[in-house]
Design a protein around this nucleic acid. Structure first.
Length: 732
DNA sequence: AGAACTATGTTTTTT
DNA sequence: ACATAGTTCT
């Protein structure tokens, strides 16, 4: 990075191509027409795009005719910044961002206002309460019908449908058909959904893209206008696009086909969100005459790390064959560490970290990656105990926090007075008003032409009447057009602060800082409508003007959020069976393959040193200990590719199904030993009835140690067994 | 009796 | 943050 800084500073005009290999150079200087860059991890995909951007600018292409589509807003900013340094030109006129942000901007420009003016509501997890209540209410199933699906099921169905659906009608239809499976009362459900559909136009992230796609597909004029506006289109992480996004790219390039997409099929990890890596395969069909450039040299990792990551991905069922190689010197093999328990795993990591830091590694060059957010809890505690500072990524977003949503609902109601979900949220904040009462109030006021006035006039003898009046008064005060967004915000806070301090009495000072941040954000907007649109679709992380602060701390991150980043030292933790891949994943499924790619993404983040750790015992949801083995993805790999550190080797028992053969360079994977997996997954607890092939039927008496079990057998008395040896079956 | 509130346990990944 | 069960309020 540093040498590149120097290189970029040295030049004033004329893009330098130093440090690019011939394939990259070819991609960068490709003048016109479609290009597909298929590239491995760490092969300089993003660098190629950055250099192309700089090169285009250097050729005299005006910045505003370049459209840069990336996966995250942060990635776009980073790329624009770098291209600016290389070309010596300001890139702030290049349009860059996520698909959603660009869609929002372009649609606004074409007068297709999105957001809440039309009564659309974005669904997310936090809105579950409102949605489910609306459904239940419209079905007349208030707290009676036990057969009615739970909130969780409805939500899962909705989000499942969202990921796949193209149109609102499909969404409703699909959810409805799933709901029918869960209930026997088809007519009721249908009727309820019809009403639900009428009252609540649902809009999800993909619908925004559909709007964009429709605009481009249906209006030749819009298509012409936009495609002549953006003469060069660059797309990063193309394997993470969904079908609509691919269509949008196709339509955007109408007439000129100057599209360059880069991607790696082996790094496709977002299928649960609708991403389809076949988009990469289909690119040449969509853009006839597309040039395909492969980047196979890795510029990130040392060869031993690459050997291991290659082995991980070599097991994939379906892939473009790419054998990555690296010329970066280094002999340190990745380390696989088997800990006895999670505490041991955490201790190992902290100790290693401390010695690395002592030896001169900067803390910001170390990252810990894991499958799910909660896998790092133990480690977080251990780090805190050693007063090591860290930044956790992949947690909650600013706009997902409850208190931020509270404030946003006021703003949303001001934009759309019939936004029932936001109203619902506001009403629930009042004491003595719960879901039922809120619905009753909503029923009345949403039927009115002026909900706020109707609220003020709401007749009731209940104790909360005063609170309702104060709310109505405050809302009426906010609902004035001459107010600036900041002005509205201040009024909201004036009303909301006492409520805020009551609801979050535990930790409101901490949450108050988020509200300050929101205030700063809102200050950058001229009108409330755009603010509400933007925060809903693609929330900006920082207030305008706030410096993007490069973290100086050690990073803990979910693998998903680590995409596209790299560190000198990477720890991938929680590589136990049942934890990675995620428990519900079935072998030989699409999902299984995606989990494997996830491990690949994680391991390829490392430049110099890679640690893969797992614990032999994990805690189950019901606080029982579960004996587990190494993740199947690691068991498939030739142990010669890593150093196995094992402070307490499992005695007996073939933990590693893989039989190493030092002679064969690329070994055949041994199929997983199903019985081992089975017994490893079985959990035992006190009082459980079990069967032993020789001792017969018995009852678990005690579990003295993680791998030991004491059983009282009907005929043979008490026996202390070792789980590695004993073939115990659980009786149902 | 029904609604609101409190306490407790669990949690896949996210533009 | 959500689900669920159990308790208190109206």
């Amino acid at each position: 990075m540093d040498d590149m800084d120097g290189m970029e500073k040295k030049r004033k005009a004329g893009v330098t191509m130093e440090g690019l290999n011939s394939s990259q150079h070819k991609a960068v200087t490709h003048g016109e027409g479609p290009v597909l860059v298929i590239a491995g991890a760490g092969s300089g995909k993003t660098r190629t795009l950055v250099h192309r951007m700089a090169w285009l600018l250097d050729q005299g292409v005006p910045p505003e005719s370049i459209l840069l589509l990336t996966f995250t807003r942060r990635a776009a900013q980073e790329m624009l910044h770098r291209a600016g340094r290389i070309s010596g030109q300001a890139c702030n006129r290049v349009v860059g961002g996520t698909f959603h942000a660009s869609a929002n901007m372009l649609l606004r420009r074409h007068g297709h206002h999105l957001g809440f003016g039309g009564g659309f509501t974005i669904i997310d997890r936090g809105d579950a309460e409102g949605i489910v209540n609306l459904i239940r209410n419209s079905l007349g199933l208030v707290g009676k019908d036990k057969r009615f699906p739970s909130k969780r099921i409805i939500l899962n169905l909705l989000s499942g449908a969202i990921n796949k659906s193209r149109k609102l009608e499909d969404l409703i239809c699909e959810t409805q058909s799933h709901l029918i499976e869960f209930t026997n009362d088809i007519i009721k459900i249908r009727k309820g959904y019809e009403e639900f559909k009428l009252n609540n136009a649902l809009m999800d992230y993909d619908d925004l893209l559909v709007n964009w796609q429709r605009l481009l597909a249906e209006s030749v004029q819009a298509r012409m206008e936009i495609s002549s506006l953006f003469r060069y289109i660059l797309v990063d992480e193309y394997q993470d696009t969904n079908l609509i996004q691919a269509q949008i790219v196709r339509l955007l390039a109408y007439g000129h086909d100057n599209v360059m997409v880069v991607g790696d099929d082996a790094q496709s990890i977002y299928s649960f969100r609708g991403a389809d890596f076949y988009n990469i395969m289909r690119f040449p069909e969509q853009f006839p005459g597309a040039e395909i450039i492969k980047l196979e040299q890795n510029y990130r990792s040392v060869q031993p790390i690459l050997a291991l990551t290659n082995a991980v991905i070599a097991q994939a069922e379906e892939k473009y064959t790419k054998e990555l190689f690296s010329e970066i010197e280094g002999k340190v093999k990745p380390v696989v560490y088997s800990a006895r328990n999670e505490a041991g795993e955490a201790r190992f990591i902290v100790e290693k970290m401390k010695s690395l830091v002592k030896a001169g590694t900067e803390e910001k060059e170390i990252a810990v990656l894991f499958r799910s957010g909660f896998h790092s809890y133990k480690l977080e505690m251990e780090l805190a105990a050693h007063s090591l500072d860290f930044e956790k990524r992949g947690g909650m977003k600013l706009t997902e926090a409850a208190h931020i949503k509270d404030v946003l609902s006021f703003l949303r109601v001001l934009i759309n007075k019939w936004d029932n979900l936001s109203w619902n949220r506001i009403l629930l904040q009042l004491e003595k008003i719960g879901p039922k009462t809120a619905l009753k109030i909503l029923d009345r006021i949403l039927a009115d032409d002026e909900p706020i006035t109707a609220l003020a006039a709401y007749k009731t003898t209940a104790k909360w009447k005063g609170a309702l009046q104060r709310l109505a008064q405050a809302m009426a005060g906010m609902d004035r057009l001459e107010l600036t967004p900041s002005g509205v915000f201040d009024l909201v806070m004036e009303y909301y602060r006492p409520i805020f301090e009551r609801i979050y009495h535990d930790d409101y000072p901490k949450r108050a800082r988020d509200l300050e941040q929101l205030k700063a954000l809102i200050g950058g907007y001229g009108d409330l409508q755009s603010f509400v649109d933007d925060t809903t679709l693609d929330p900006p992380e920082n207030a305008p003007g706030a410096q993007e602060t490069a973290p100086k701390k050690l990073i803990l991150s979910t693998i998903h959020s680590s995409k596209g980043l790299e560190w000198d030292v990477v720890f991938v933790i929680g590589l136990s069976e049942g934890r990675f891949p995620h428990q519900k994943t079935l072998p030989e499924s699409e999902q299984w393959e995606e989990e494997r790619r996830l491990l690949y993404v994680a391991a390829t983040r490392a430049r110099k040193q890679l640690f893969l750790t797992y614990s032999r015992t994990i805690m189950t949801p019901d606080r029982k200990f579960l004996n587990v083995v190494m993740s199947p993805f690691l068991r498939e790999i030739n142990p010669g590719l890593y150093i196995h550190e094992d402070p307490a080797p499992a005695t007996g028992g073939n933990v590693f199904a893989y039989r190493s053969d030092p002679e064969s360079a690329i070994p055949e994977p041994t199929p997983l030993n199903k019985t081992t997996v089975q017994s490893a997954r079985t959990e035992f607890s006190k009082g459980m009835a079990v069967r032993h092939p020789f001792f017969g039927i018995g009852k678990v008496k005690e579990i003295p140690a993680p791998r030991r079990i004491e059983v009282h057998f009907d005929r043979h008395g008490d026996k202390l067994l070792h789980l590695d040896y004993a073939k115990l079956e659980v009786m149902e």
